[in-house]
């Protein structure tokens, strides 16, 4: 995956670029708005990570708006120290696809850009999701593991659907909160973990091969690989 990072802080840049390379991606870096604009417009990237406050005349949101106006559909993750709800809304309105506030955990960033590239590949037409012998029929809302039928509450179904759509990717607790419950805040306690373990009870208990796994310091993943 080819990633463009537009970010002026050197430490953050180093941290992100190294992490991306470690994860097997290639990363280009632009330290200011002008270079960022130039690279984003001329090179093909799978995803762009954009800081909002940049040195020089062009800020992150202006770049995003310009890119969207010129028809570029590259998924963009906004990375910003501006954490207020209104700022977040402004970022997404300008054409960003996701918004992550600084300081952030690298696992969170990686999981989110993975989710973004997956989303941009298009999967909306699917009516059936499958991971190993776990099957979800989105139309009849039936879930089966092997030959056994699994009964889920509506919210559990939504949680499983999200995990299935992002199969083999790491999904963080915040991503689950935002996408399954539409909660854009920190609910203090580990309620998400409790929901996951309940879901795990229903789909993984009594099966030799667990599909829903915990990824240390990051979140969860639903995968059939080891």
């Amino acid at each position: 995956m080819k990633v463009l990072l537009v970010e002026d802080n050197e430490r953050v840049t180093q941290f992100v670029v190294k992490g991306l390379q470690e994860a097997g991606h290639t990363a280009d870096h632009a330290p200011n708005g002008r270079d960022g604009m130039f690279l984003a417009a001329s090179e093909p990237y799978d995803v762009i990570i954009m800081d909002r406050m940049l040195p020089g005349e062009i800020d992150g949101l202006a770049i995003i708006e310009a890119l969207r106006k010129s028809g570029k559909r590259t998924p963009i993750l906004i990375l910003s120290a501006l954490s207020e709800v209104d700022e977040r809304i402004r970022g997404l309105r300008s054409g960003g696809d996701d918004y992550l506030t600084k300081p952030f955990a690298f696992g969170e960033l990686l999981a989110r850009i993975d989710a973004l590239t997956r989303r941009s590949q298009g999967e909306s037409a699917q009516t059936r999701l499958e991971v190993a012998d776990l099957r979800v029929d989105l139309l009849s809302r039936k879930v089966t593991r092997g030959s056994r039928s699994v009964t889920l509450q509506p919210r559990e179904f939504k949680l499983l659907e999200y995990l299935m759509r992002h199969a083999d990717q790491v999904v963080t607790r915040t991503m689950l909160l935002e996408n399954v419950w539409d909660y854009h805040f920190d609910p203090q306690t580990n309620v998400v973990d409790v929901h996951i373990s309940k879901l795990r009870q229903k789909i993984d208990a009594d099966f030799e091969r667990p599909l829903l796994r915990t990824v240390r310091n990051a979140g969860y993943t639903l995968t059939s690989h080891d």
Binding site: V85, Y183, H184, F185, P187, Q188, T189
Partner: peptide, 17 residues
């Protein structure tokens, strides 16, 4: 709605604790 949900969540969370 976001703030109301968070406030209510805090109250339930407190009560649970």
């Amino acid at each position: 709605p976001v703030l109301l949900a968070q406030a209510l969540g805090n109250l339930i969370d407190n009560a649970l604790k």
